[in-house]
């Protein structure tokens, strides 16, 4: 479908733009916080629409299940393949064929560039949860493409 590719191309252009912008920075560390923030704002707004027809969530796990199923389907056209939790505020979401990485490689090639393409999604999850009153830190881990793990640490106050 043509409308899927639009999002993918726009996403990769945002990454390129962000990289271009901090090219002249002297330090080698690439700064993707702006991309993460774009994801956060998008996630926050999407959540208001998505939960409109939903009954109230029972608890945190119920919310995470929503992220894995409906939220993910809405954005990546598939569900999360595996959800794990230690029941103490740490959740690991595993996607075996992450959409932004599927076109790149099926192994270790280009692995060093993978972190760029997951920053937006980390922000997206964080923003979605923030709107549901769950403050969290989301990090991502790519060991072999195209599978990707998202770690969610819920911040308790």
């Amino acid at each position: 479908m043509a409308d899927d590719i639009v999002f993918e191309l726009l996403h990769s252009e945002i990454i390129n733009y962000a990289l271009e912008k901090n090219k002249d920075n002297t330090n080698k560390e690439t700064d993707l916080s702006v991309v993460e923030y774009i994801g956060f704002a998008a996630g926050y707004k999407i959540m208001e629409r998505l939960t409109r027809e939903w009954p109230r969530f029972k608890d945190e796990l119920d919310t995470m299940k929503f992220i894995c199923t409906d939220f993910w389907t809405c954005i990546y056209k598939k569900q999360i393949d595996n959800l794990r939790t230690n029941h103490q505020g740490v959740y690991v979401l595993q996607d075996n064929a992450f959409r932004f990485l599927t076109n790149f490689s099926n192994g270790h090639q280009y692995l060093e560039f993978a972190p760029r393409y997951v920053a937006y999604t980390c922000g997206l999850i964080r923003g979605g949860l923030a709107n549901l009153c769950i403050n969290s830190v989301v990090t991502a881990e790519v060991q072999t493409m195209p599978s990707c793990k998202f770690h969610i640490h819920v911040q308790r106050t």
Binding site: M47, E48, T51, R52, W54, P55, R56, F57, K58, L132
Partner: peptide, 26 residues
């Protein structure tokens, strides 16, 4: 109870007040 619509919350002599809370606590 998981319904977003909470029904009649409060009524005074002249007014009736109805409430609704979204999943995002609005």
């Amino acid at each position: 109870l998981r319904d977003l619509y909470l029904g009649l919350l409060y009524s005074t002599d002249s007014h009736k007040i109805y409430g609704y809370v979204t999943n995002t606590r609005i």
